[in-house]
């Protein structure tokens, strides 16, 4: 029995301690965010946040996760709200909103990892440059080739976050139009 904290809830899981976190999330807890892509830490399909750091669930045995806080896509709004000091949990995060606004996806399968990684990035660096975005996202693959659209969506999300934080700053809101 291993005790894990997932999206703020503490859960005892029966799986052997060498089981990769991904299989606990998908097969036991039936979560839909993290998903199998390679099982080799090469693609980012299975990404979750562990204590705020993007982590590949497919190669992370649950034994290493005691006393850590795991956030999946299902918990990303609550996590984002807590980290940004929002009064309530929004329906979706700026990254999710921007991806839809930019119509940035095709099959959308890679979006779990993209959202997890972009959220980590923007919480650490709310105003990343193009190069910083590319470098942060470089470990996440997209077979459908949506990279250019994801980059613009992350820029848009960054703007949305900064506008929300700085209120009515005209110089920033102009860029949103």
């Amino acid at each position: 029995m291993t005790s894990l904290t997932i999206n703020g809830v503490s859960i005892d899981v029966e799986a052997d301690s060498d089981t990769p976190l991904l299989y606990v999330l998908t097969d036991e807890l039936l979560l839909q965010g993290p998903r199998f892509g390679c099982g080799l830490a090469q693609c980012g399909s299975c990404s979750v946040l562990v204590d705020g750091i993007e982590t590949r669930a497919c190669v992370t045995p649950i034994a290493t996760l005691k006393d850590k806080s795991i956030t999946t896509l299902e918990g990303i709004t609550a996590y984002y709200a807590a980290k940004s000091g929002l009064a309530s949990i929004p329906q979706s995060t700026p990254v999710q909103d921007a991806l839809v606004a930019e119509q940035a996806l095709q099959c959308g399968y890679c979006y779990n990892g993209m959202i997890i990684k972009a959220t980590e990035l923007l919480l650490n660096n709310p105003d990343p440059s193009d190069a910083e975005i590319r470098s942060a996202m470089n470990g996440h693959l997209c077979r459908c080739g949506t990279y250019p659209k994801i980059i613009s969506a992350i820029k848009k999300a960054s703007l949305m976050i900064r506008v929300a934080q700085q209120g009515e700053d005209d110089t920033i809101t102009e860029g949103l139009a």
């Binding site: 839909q32 998903r35 979706s92 119509q103 996806l105 959308g108 979006y111």
Partner: peptide
């Protein structure tokens, strides 16, 4: 017209069910 795709919001939220999610 560029009508927004119906599947996008679910996909961005992670609630869209791909074949891999079915049981």
């Amino acid at each position: 017209t560029p009508f927004p795709r119906k599947d996008f919001p679910l996909k961005a939220k992670g609630t869209y069910r791909y074949i891999q999610h079915l049981r």
